[in-house]
Design a protein around this nucleic acid. Structure first.
Lengths: 135, 135
DNA sequence: CAAATTCTCAACCATTTGGTTGAATATAAC
DNA sequence: GTTATATTCAACCAAATGGTTGAGAATTTG
């Protein structure tokens, strides 16, 4: 198993009534503005007005988006003076990631083993694990 | 890089006006009924009524959910006689997976390298890249 | 052909969503 | 203390969502 750091943190802080939480996380990610905010916050944290600046909508609209992200626990806020600084929390992303991986992983294994059998140069066993070493 | 099969198929068939497609995929996954259907279909394909059977809602409601999943290209339908058989298409799942991975991956690397420094038995360099080879 | 099965389409309804504007709150600066 | 800045709250609105029921359309069965 890899990525166990994130997995661990997801187990700890990331499962409050699991299904409903996944609802909120996927819903939060279903909007392009909110995905852009996540993207932006993956670089560095920022205040509400800084986050709102690139978007062609009112500050209030962005504030609402931030509340949706906060509801999904994708961001946390630190109140600094009169500004509130938002930063990314990847735990719910890991939850979503894991949910999706249940299904992609199985099929990737099927396809990988299929390709292992179809590949002409797959003579030595165990080649499927080092496929990307081929330039 | 591994799992390049799914990555490849995602590049080919999975990017039609990318952003809007991600909207639809994440939205499709934000509903528990639809996630259950995806889960169910990951086992085997099924007709509309077979898929509707476990749920406490009308057949029509499930039909709508299937249409949402179809709109996100998460399922495809094969009309067999008077039944339509739905099956899973993981390409959009891989797209979503990749989007999320942009952010989880970076932090996993940070955390992994942090753990590498904290772990007592992390003496040899380059260990972070082969963590999952450890049984 | 008639009847039953499988599924979609259309209309309707309550609730949520994503946006707006305007007022209110709290902190910082003058 | 007054004014400017940063942010949220409240009300409102159009559109989308998730569900319902009832009427078709297509296919299989009797």
């Amino acid at each position: 198993m890899k990525n166990n750091n994130a997995l661990k943190s997801a187990e700890n802080g990331g499962s409050p009534s699991d299904e409903a939480h996944l609802d909120r996380v996927f819903h939060a990610l279903s909007d392009p503005t909110r995905r852009a905010i996540v993207q932006r916050l993956s670089g560095s944290s920022g205040t509400v007005s800084a986050l709102a600046e690139p978007f062609d909508m009112s500050l209030n609209a962005v504030s609402k988006h931030l509340k949706v992200l906060e509801g999904a626990r994708l961001i946390k806020r630190d109140i600094v003076g009169r500004t509130s600084v938002c930063s990314l929390n990847i735990d719910p992303l890991v939850n979503a990631h894991e949910w999706i991986q249940q299904y992609t992983q199985f099929w990737n294994e099927v396809l990988d083993s299929l390709e292992m059998h179809l590949d002409a140069d797959a003579a030595e066993p165990g080649a499927a694990a080092k496929k990307d070493e081929r330039p």
